[in-house]
Amino acid sequence: MLEVKDLYVTVEGNEILKGLTLTINAGEVHAIMGPNGAGKSTLSAVIAGKDGYEVTSGSITFEGQDVLEMEVEERALAGMLLGFQYPVEIPGVKNIYLLKAALNAKRSANGQEDIPAPEFMKLIKEKIAEMKMDASFLQRSVNEGFSGGEKKRNEILQMLVLQPRLAMLDEIDSGLDIDAMKVVADGVNSLRDAERAILLVTHYQRLLDYIVPDRVHVLVDGRIVKSGDAELAKKLEAHGYDWVEEGSAA
């Protein structure tokens, strides 16, 4: 589904990703772990199309399409959705507007009519209950004045409504207490199916107790230095990232 090949990325003249290669197939959940500054967030930002990241070589394809040639919104419409580590506050834009506009954009891209209001309301109410959120969230401005946990739930709510093919979650566990993390993990797990892939970017193994990945990759200094199954995350937890770095150096 997603293929990243030998990707080199610089940010403000600094090379952050140095030959990263990664393949994710439908139905899989991948976790990318690594120490701070390894380039974890850069990877998801580049896939989503954020400004200021220069791809100097390598490629990213999503179901055969060249991702780097696509506009930001085209990537989302193709089914790649990024859950932000620090979701931006958008004063005055109600959550309901964002959800409706995004859903209609997706339907329009698929040649569908705008969603009828009753159907939309039914869908939203169902998803919002799933995320254990209050309906008043919908009339509030996007992320404005939200707690860290509320922002993360809001990111997952958008995933549940928009049903991406590839959900990328950047440090979705940061700033969450254990109850909020369970809600978020339940939400993510509900997205799991044979047609969909999930990419988790995380610093801590803790999240992976709730969302068990099929593959774990260790990202150090802009490159994946080790890959394995869920057990790898546990080993990392026990031994720390130095263990991998020493191992890869040896």
Binding site: D51, P87, G92, K94, A101, A102, A105, K106, L162
Partner: peptide
């Protein structure tokens, strides 16, 4: 621009994003 980007990552095109933010501007 950051808000425009955030909206675009949800599949909303640039013009609609601008529209939403203009509406939000009045909303304040």
């Amino acid at each position: 621009e950051e808000a425009i980007f955030a909206l675009r990552t949800r599949g909303i095109d640039r013009q609609t994003a601008r529209g939403l933010l203009t509406l939000a501007f009045a909303g304040e």
